[in-house]
Amino acid sequence: MDKNKQVTITRKFEFSASHRYWRDEWSAEKNEQVFGRCISTYGHGHNYELHVSVGGQVNPETGMIINLTDLKKEVNVVLEDFDHKFLNLDTPWFRELVPTTENVAAVLFRLIDERLNTYPLLRLERIRLYEKHDLYAEIRRAED
């Protein structure tokens, strides 16, 4: 196998979810000061856009690093638990963790990375999570 054929591919996904920024142990004033409008009592929502980038060696038989259909399937399994949910209450990950753009992206990175562990030649390189068109978080591995 040509060791130099290390390629990264990215696929885009969308999901819609609501969330609320709030810490019980803080006063209402402090919550508002740190989180602004994101503290509204019943939450608010976004159409999130997720870019998943994976890297690996090109398989000489298929010419691919992963079948995009497989990538789509694995990521969609993860996103099922996020799509059309209130992240704070309907998922187990944001009881202690505030579902900020940074934290939602980091949780997604770990969950997707776990799903892709069964593909030994593939590595999740980074994800980018757009919360709105003018705000996004990106997560990469610290060892890079």
Binding site: T101, E102, A105, A106, F109, R110, D113, H133, D134, L135, Y136, A137, E138, I139, R140, R141, A142, E143, D144
Partner: peptide
């Protein structure tokens, strides 16, 4: 696994 975090804001 340690992660690196980046946040981007777009203004015009």
């Amino acid at each position: 696994m340690k992660l690196k975090y980046y946040l981007t804001r777009i203004h015009d």
